[in-house]
Simulated scan of single mutants.
Amino acid sequence: MESKSFSQPPNDLLYSLGRAILFEMDPEKAHDLTLQMLSKPAVQARLAARYAAAAAPTEVLGLNFRNRIGLAAGLDKNGDYIDALGALGFGHIEVGTVTPRPQPGNDQPRLFRLTQHRALINRFGFNNKGVDHLVRKVRLRRYPGILGINIGKNAVTSLQEAHNDYTYCLERVYRYADYVTVNISSPNTSGLRDLQHGERLDHLLESLKSTQSRLATEYERYVPVAVKIAPDMSDEELDGFCNAVIANEIDAVITGNTTSGRDTVRHHLYAREAGGLSGAPLKPLADDRLQAVSERIGSKAALIGVGGVSCGQDAGRKLALGASLVQLYTGLIYQGPALVRDCIECTNP
């Protein structure tokens, strides 16, 4: 699919003024304040009116999306702000990552802005209130779009027992999710990315597929399962991963998470901070790995493209490389709600 003529991030003066104020604050406090503001019905109504986009329905994974643009996991880890974020026009929202038990995540500070690069580095470490809290919130949602729930393992759970955390979360969220994402690619939980390879990957996918099959029978409803991977995987690693996805009939792959690489920002003050890099500098790597996964998987699993989307043209490029859906996160922080509309318009055939 050829993208339309959008080539620059949308210029939204109103959001730029608000961002200037928020960027004077600690990043994590600004994040929390923004979500609290979005929770106000009057703000939601104003946003929905100002940034409305024409409907662009599409069917992926047997689900009807009102457009191809979604919110990536991480912005709303606990499902506390689903309706508020839905006012921004997303066709789907992914909440989480959620773990079986609540955990505080890594010590603060753990979020850093690289403003001149339109990038972030985070090392949150799956901070969340636990799957039971998220389920309570999800049951109350009014957002009519597609809801994905992103699941992970607790930091104290060994890799050998990781499949138990994932299957437990899958069981808890299954009846409330439109799809479930398995996060094995965060760089901020020690050893987590080892689950992307070899016997550990095979064992995890087999456990998830078995659980999914049992739950589909129990609830008489099939909920697709996606796996989210790192953009740092080599071609050889992708060979093994994609073979496992195909063998286990996994429904979708999300490419990808944040990167541990720093080449594109190596001269920045925060370049040595531990964590995952996201935003505009990630785009070339994310696009390259998306294409690599597409070449290996073809039509045997749906692909969701994430990483470095700063304008509608970036979203259109993801579709051209094989993605059926596109997700935003860091670009939304820098460009605001106009980015959602821009991407919807650019990916509407």
Rank of each mutant, 00 (worst) to 15 (best):
M1W: 00
S3M: 14
F6I: 13
S7L: 14
P10T: 04
G18Y: 08
K29L: 12
Y51I: 03
A53E: 06
A55H: 05
A56D: 10
P57Y: 04
T58I: 15
E59H: 09
V60Q: 11
N64W: 15
G74M: 04
D76W: 10
D80Q: 10
D80S: 07
I82V: 15
D83H: 01
F90R: 03
T99E: 02
Q103S: 13
Q103C: 08
G105V: 10
N106P: 05
R113K: 08
Q116H: 13
I121D: 04
F124V: 07
G125S: 05
V135A: 12
R142F: 12
P144Y: 06
L147P: 02
G148P: 09
I149Y: 02
I151F: 12
T157Y: 11
S158W: 01
A162I: 05
H163P: 00
Y168Q: 07
C169P: 04
R172E: 10
D178Y: 04
D178E: 10
T181S: 02
I184C: 08
S185H: 02
G191H: 11
G191Y: 08
L195T: 01
L195N: 02
Q196D: 06
E199L: 15
E199I: 14
H203Q: 13
H203M: 14
L204T: 12
L205P: 05
S207P: 08
S207C: 12
K209W: 12
T217V: 12
R221C: 09
P224S: 06
A230N: 07
D232H: 08
E236A: 15
E237C: 14
N243I: 07
A244N: 00
V245E: 05
E249R: 15
T258W: 05
T259P: 04
V265R: 13
A274I: 15
K283Q: 08
P284I: 15
P284R: 15
L285S: 03
R289P: 04
A292V: 15
A301S: 13
A302Y: 02
G308Y: 02
L319H: 03
L321I: 13
L325D: 01
L325T: 12
V326M: 08
V326I: 06
V326G: 10
Q327L: 00
L332K: 11
L339H: 00
L339C: 03
